[in-house]
Computed example of a mutant assay.
Amino acid sequence: MTVVALLSVAPVIEGSMSGEVAKAVAELDGFDVSYETNPMGTVIEADDVDTLLAAVGAAHKAVDGDRVSTFLKIDDKRGSDASAREKVDAVEAHLGREAKRER
C-alpha cells in the first residue's frame, strides 16, 4: 500500500516563512518517506499511514512560532499501490501531454 499526502506547515508570521518551512521539510529526512516540495506544499509518500503521520507530526513540531498552521490531505487508497507519479502519469495520458505549462 502507498499512502500519498499533501502537507503544508507554516508559522503564522509576517514576512518570509521559508526558513521555518525548510525546517519542516528537513525533518522528513528522518523517516522512511519520499517527498517533493512545491510552492503550495509538500507531497509525501509512505508505505503506511502510521509512518506518514509520524513524519507529519515531526514536521509540524519542527516549526518555531507562537502559532503554527498545518494542512494535511491524505489519499489512503487501500486497494492500490499507485504512487504519486503514477497518478500524474494517468492524468497526462488523458491529456496527451505533460500536466505542466509555463507562462
Score class of each variant (00 low, 15 high):
1 M>G: 15
1 M>W: 00
1 M>T: 12
2 T>A: 06
2 T>V: 14
3 V>R: 07
4 V>R: 14
5 A>T: 12
6 L>C: 02
7 L>C: 15
8 S>F: 02
8 S>A: 13
8 S>C: 11
12 V>I: 13
16 S>Q: 05
18 S>P: 03
21 V>Q: 02
21 V>K: 12
21 V>A: 13
22 A>R: 02
22 A>S: 15
22 A>K: 02
23 K>V: 01
23 K>T: 02
24 A>S: 15
25 V>W: 08
27 E>L: 06
28 L>G: 09
28 L>T: 08
29 D>H: 08
30 G>M: 03
32 D>F: 05
33 V>A: 09
37 T>P: 01
37 T>I: 02
37 T>A: 13
39 P>F: 03
39 P>K: 03
42 T>I: 11
43 V>G: 01
44 I>K: 07
44 I>M: 04
47 D>Y: 00
48 D>L: 09
48 D>V: 01
48 D>E: 14
48 D>P: 10
50 D>T: 05
50 D>N: 08
52 L>E: 02
53 L>V: 02
53 L>H: 06
54 A>Q: 14
55 A>H: 04
56 V>L: 03
58 A>E: 11
58 A>F: 03
59 A>C: 08
61 K>G: 09
61 K>W: 02
63 V>G: 10
64 D>C: 00
64 D>W: 01
65 G>M: 12
66 D>V: 01
69 S>T: 04
71 F>N: 14
71 F>S: 13
73 K>F: 02
75 D>P: 00
75 D>N: 10
76 D>I: 04
77 K>Q: 12
78 R>G: 07
80 S>D: 15
80 S>C: 10
81 D>W: 04
81 D>K: 11
82 A>E: 14
84 A>Q: 09
85 R>C: 00
88 V>N: 04
89 D>N: 11
89 D>Y: 01
90 A>C: 03
91 V>I: 15
91 V>C: 04
92 E>Q: 13
93 A>I: 00
94 H>P: 00
94 H>R: 15
95 L>V: 04
96 G>T: 04
97 R>H: 10
97 R>D: 12
98 E>V: 13
99 A>I: 03
99 A>D: 11
101 R>P: 00
101 R>F: 08
101 R>G: 09
